[in-house]
Design a protein around this nucleic acid. Structure first.
Lengths: 155, 155
DNA sequence: TCAAGACACCTGTGATAACAACTGTCAGCG
DNA sequence: CGCTGACAGTTGTTATCACAGGTGTCTTGA
């Protein structure tokens, strides 16, 4: 059945090169993220949560206001960042505290427990990234990164 | 010392080339999808719904069982496809009917209204794809598609 | 000084997305 | 037949994600 789909796909190619690139980007992103999600799941982390923790670790010492965290995320608008951080606070991954000098800001810091978790994950995440793309040469990877960046330029 | 790390971070934002590619793929995918979502919104369609309609139009005449629709989607597992199709049925975009010869299958067909909607969208979607990537040369696009496909190969 | 307006964040609503577990249906085999 | 699995789809639960609109806080200009 799979094979039949392949054949059909081959017989009915993409309508345009641009559309092909569009779908290739989506499919590849989906595939790459899937590996990360699987790696994180046993540790009770989702991919956006892991992303937040990476951002907050980079902001130590000191932490960041909610809006800054959101600005550094790949996706996620402001409203979602709030709820994401609330969930993470409930799980003991971050601490949120309204700033006293300007009560509009909610300051967010990573907890020591989350820092330990990140340290455990660092090595396996690095290995995963390498494994995912180890079949590509360095020049290919550089070219790919460059073309992707360029793809976003003209928008 | 802290300050020095900050500087290093800024000058070397990625820990590895593989990670850079990873993030570039996600960011680019997000950016490209965002344009499509904006285009579809005025017409009351989401991106997955549009994707389903494209698949079902390609399956005319005849339609497809639910599982086949799911297999052709970029993301979305079986359970989500069911609910996606249910919502779309409520909006009059598809018709679902349990097959009488084998009651396990639910056969899905695109409605005439949705076909008309797709025809209206075809031109602007094509233009959007072109506009998104028009600043890139054809060889660049071909290379990009090729590298993306290759990136998924080794997994 | 004090009422707009800007600002940062939060709430409400609808739609995906992932995974586990469950229901109904069919096929094969004793 | 009737039982056992396989199969297709559905429900349940949790977490994102997007956007509109709302709340509390500060800033600023008449």
């Amino acid at each position: 059945m799979r094979r039949l789909q392949q054949v059909i796909k081959q017989r009915k190619p993409f309508e345009s090169l641009e559309q092909e690139v569009f779908l290739e980007v989506l499919r590849t992103g989906h595939a790459l993220v899937h590996d990360l999600v699987e790696l994180l799941r046993p540790h009770g982390l989702t991919q956006p949560q892991y992303n937040v923790l990476r951002i907050l670790r980079g902001a130590e010492p000191g932490g960041l206001p909610t809006g800054e965290v959101g600005a550094r995320m790949v996706a996620s608008r402001e409203p979602d960042v709030t709820r994401l951080l609330v969930r993470m606070e409930e799980h003991g991954l971050v601490r949120r505290q309204r700033r006293t000098d300007n009560r509009r800001f909610v300051h967010v810091r990573i907890t020591r427990r989350a820092l330990r978790l990140l340290r455990v994950l660092d090595e396996s995440v690095r290995r995963m990234h390498t494994r995912q793309l180890q079949h590509m040469t360095r020049p290919e990877l550089e070219r790919l990164a460059e073309l992707l960046e360029r793809a976003r330029e003209g928008r």
